[in-house]
Amino acid sequence: MEKAIELYGSAIKAISTSGVPLRSRPTFVYCSTMECYQSFGGGNERAVSYPFLGTVIAPASWQRYITQHELIHWFQFYEIGAVSTMMKPEWFREGMAYVYSGAPESDIPEHYLPMMKRYSDWHSEKSWPKVIEQAGHL
């Protein structure tokens, strides 16, 4: 339990320090067994976020960068809307989440690297209110 609390708190702090205006503190469940993870509907992914419900982290995924990645999805759900977020291009949804996750490049699937670049180029010098506004037009 201590490790889960530390991961969640340090991820919230890292996301806030990076400038992302995270206004929501979603519920996270850190499963220590695959049985736990699967009981929440998890499969082979590292984590799953359910809009309006919470996020479930798989037992092998207890890393701060995975928590940060999922917090970015919650930021998207909160600011853009859950359904609207899911309708955005993958380069936006996953590019943003990977950019702000702090994941080591060696642990980012290669096909997401160009999405991260595209998101970073698109975000560039935009303020967060402008990012949110323009995301509505993607």
Rank of each mutant, 00 (worst) to 15 (best):
K117A: 15
V20P: 02
I108T: 11
I132P: 11
G19A: 03
V48Y: 10
A135T: 13
T33N: 06
K88Y: 06
M87H: 08
V48H: 14
I108H: 02
T55E: 01
E105T: 11
Y30A: 00
Y37P: 02
H73I: 08
G136H: 15
A11H: 00
G43M: 11
V83L: 12
L113C: 07
P109R: 04
A58H: 10
H111F: 14
G54M: 08
S106N: 15
E45A: 14
Y98S: 07
G136D: 14
Y119M: 10
K130E: 15
F52N: 12
V48G: 09
I5C: 02
K117F: 12
A82M: 09
P129C: 05
H123S: 11
F52Y: 13
S24T: 13
I12L: 15
S124P: 10
H111Y: 15
F77I: 05
G19K: 04
S18G: 10
L53W: 04
M34V: 04
T55H: 01
Q38V: 07
R23H: 03
M115K: 10
V131G: 09
G95V: 08
S10H: 11
T27G: 03
G54K: 05
V131K: 12
Y98N: 07
A58W: 07
G41R: 12
S61M: 11
G9A: 13
I5N: 02
E125P: 05
